[in-house]
């Protein structure tokens, strides 16, 4: 039974967190013999071995993820410049951020990009998943082709789409002109460029989320569909009242992962537009990058990075709450 793939794992994770592992009830349920073994294992100092196994991963995670996060918070309170001294300036960087119009513009661009990419992209991925699940001859090859862009790195994909979108010589405009239309300034018009980056991201990522959603859809128990058929529900009603509620955890997973990824938009805009035209595709991470490594204002860039960290963690926390509430209800 593959139903509701995400929820059992999450439940296990949450159980593990609140009760310190598959503790109490597991032992009770497994009966006396196992209880004896578990007790003797604890008595043999299993705890030390456990730390030995998880230790390297925890140390590396601390050094490479947790400490940098704290370092970032500390540096964001300084006027540190590359090659210079770090002086404490309090929250001056943050109040400067509030008046930094390019940061504001970048934040708005990034949000529009994320909402369009994930909002519309999830619907498209769901459509593809519904189209290609169930019994359907040749579904394997269709899935493979839609999934294939995942094998192209972001940088390669960005370079390829720079060519496809090229206004003078690019293939897309060539086809549009052959059809009697006029070319579009895909990457050179401030009204279009951000949307062009969204198209590239759809192309790159829809396949992955389609596969996630197919796995969830094919895990919905058949008897639910049969019950719907017996009740004479239309295809639309079946989708709305049977399929969608059953794959809610997978949908949340898609929106969360994709959304957090989209907020980090960088490679596309760095390679395809360099933030232009007229800063219409400037993203938060591109702003951090230029402030840190071109203007060398590392302290200021650290405060920008901290805002991004903070927003991501808040979104993550809200999503985790949704997940667990979902589980309580189901």
């Amino acid at each position: 039974m593959r139903s509701a793939r995400i929820s059992p794992a999450r439940r296990r994770v949450l159980d593990g967190a609140s009760a310190g592992g598959p503790s109490g009830d597991a032992v009770v349920l497994a009966g006396a013999r196992r209880a004896v073994i578990v007790r003797s294992r604890n008595a043999r100092g299993n705890g030390v071995a456990g730390f030995g196994f998880v230790g390297p991963a925890l140390v590396l995670l601390a050094v490479l993820y947790v400490i940098p996060t704290i370092v970032d918070g500390a540096f964001s309170l300084t006027n540190y410049q590359l090659g210079g001294q770090a002086g404490f300036v309090g929250v001056a960087n943050y109040s400067a951020l509030a008046h930094d119009s390019l940061f504001g513009q970048s934040a708005v661009n990034t949000l529009i990009f994320a909402v369009l990419t994930v909002g519309v992209g999830t619907v498209l991925a769901l459509g593809a998943a519904l189209l290609l699940s169930g019994s359907f001859v040749g579904k394997g090859i269709y899935r493979f082709l839609i999934y294939l862009p995942q094998s192209i790195s972001f940088a390669s994909g960005a370079v390829i789409w720079t060519w496809l979108f090229n206004a003078q010589d690019g293939p897309i405009n060539a086809v549009l002109r052959d059809l009697g239309g006029s070319g579009v300034n895909w990457l050179t018009s401030p009204h279009v460029a951000l949307f062009s980056l969204v198209i590239m991201s759809w192309w790159r990522d829809i396949g992955f989320y389609m596969v996630v959603l197919i796995a969830a859809i094919e895990g919905v128990p058949q008897y639910l569909y049969e019950a719907a058929r017996v009740d004479g529900a239309s295809a639309w009603k079946t989708l709305w009242h049977v399929t969608l509620p059953s794959i809610r955890p997978a949908m949340l997973f898609v929106v969360l992962t994709w959304g957090l990824g989209a907020l980090q938009m960088f490679t596309q805009t760095y390679i395809m537009t360099d933030g232009g035209p007229v800063q219409s595709t400037y993203s938060v991470v591109l702003k951090i990058y230029t402030d840190a490594f071109q203007s060398l204002h590392l302290g200021y860039a650290a405060s920008e990075a901290f805002v991004l960290l903070f927003v991501s963690i808040i979104i993550g926390a809200i999503a985790v709450r949704w997940f667990s509430r979902d589980l309580e209800r189901s």
Partner: peptide, 19 residues
């Protein structure tokens, strides 16, 4: 460990660079 999944690599890159 799961919480580290919430930390966006692009935001961690700058402080990791400093480190």
């Amino acid at each position: 460990v799961l919480l580290t999944l919430m930390l966006p690599p692009a935001a961690v890159a700058l402080p990791l660079f400093l480190e």
